[in-house]
Computed example of a mutant assay.
Amino acid sequence: MTLSTQTMTDEQRKALILEYFNTFDRGGIRSTGEPILSLFADDCMVWFPKWGLAKGVDEVGQMFADLGSTFEWIDHTTSHLNFVFSGGTTVAVEGLTRGRHRDGDWQAGRPQWGAGRFCNIFEIWDMKIQRLHIYLDPDYAGRDTDRYPWLARELSAAR
């Protein structure tokens, strides 16, 4: 990773993170017309469950293309994001999503155990995302229930 040369405020980091979520919701095109990858450092690292660690903008682009091909649309509820600033370059962000995945629709809280809640850990400096780890349940449509006895019981009781 590159060495930091430009001081950033927490508000600047927050603005960049909001641009990231809004860009993702617009299908990867920033408000400036640039692609989402312009928010990332050339040597960035991004981790997503069931995909793994992407290193550099080319691999991150492939990861986003792979993930994006499974969605019809997604909405990060940016008005309800919870930002936790470290006092340094790291920012944790909790939030909610809803959308339409190739396996079906989802919305945070419907059902309570389902997909839609996330926590992302960003490292940001020099006005770029250097590292991003995305923590969430990638079973957007809630189909992976047989392996969890408490979910299987709940679903059979509801039938």
Rank of each mutant, 00 (worst) to 15 (best):
A15F: 10
S31Q: 15
C44L: 06
I129P: 01
E72D: 11
T70Q: 11
R100W: 09
N120L: 01
F122W: 08
G142I: 05
G109C: 09
D146F: 14
W73P: 07
S69G: 13
D43K: 14
G88I: 03
L151F: 07
T23G: 12
A152Q: 13
L3P: 08
T89W: 02
F64N: 00
A92Q: 04
G52Y: 09
L37H: 01
K50Y: 05
T2S: 15
L67T: 06
W113C: 10
D66Q: 11
D42C: 04
G61P: 07
H80I: 02
T32W: 01
V46D: 00
A41N: 10
S4V: 06
W113I: 02
I129L: 03
G87F: 12
Q62L: 10
V91C: 12
G142W: 05
G109M: 05
H101M: 01
D58S: 12
I129M: 02
Y20R: 10
M127P: 00
L16E: 01
W51E: 06
P111T: 08
G61K: 02
L16K: 12
T32F: 00
G68F: 01
Q12R: 15
A115G: 06
R110G: 03
T23N: 09
H101F: 03
S69K: 01
G68T: 06
T7A: 14
D103L: 07
G95M: 04
K55I: 08
H76Q: 07
F122H: 08
S86F: 11
Q6D: 02
T2G: 08
Q107Y: 06
Q6M: 11
N120P: 10
T89V: 10
I29F: 09
N22Y: 01
G116R: 00
W125Y: 15
D58G: 04
T7W: 04
M8R: 12
D126P: 08
D126A: 05
T145D: 01
L155P: 10
G114Y: 03
T97R: 13
F24I: 08
C119Q: 09
Q107I: 10
F83A: 06
G61R: 05
D25F: 07
T78K: 08
L155M: 14
D146T: 11
P111M: 08
D126Q: 04
F40Q: 00
W106I: 02
G116M: 00
E154V: 08
L151W: 07
D126G: 03
W73S: 11
I134P: 03
K55N: 12
L136F: 14
D105Y: 09
D144Q: 14
G28V: 02
T23D: 04
S69P: 01
T23L: 07
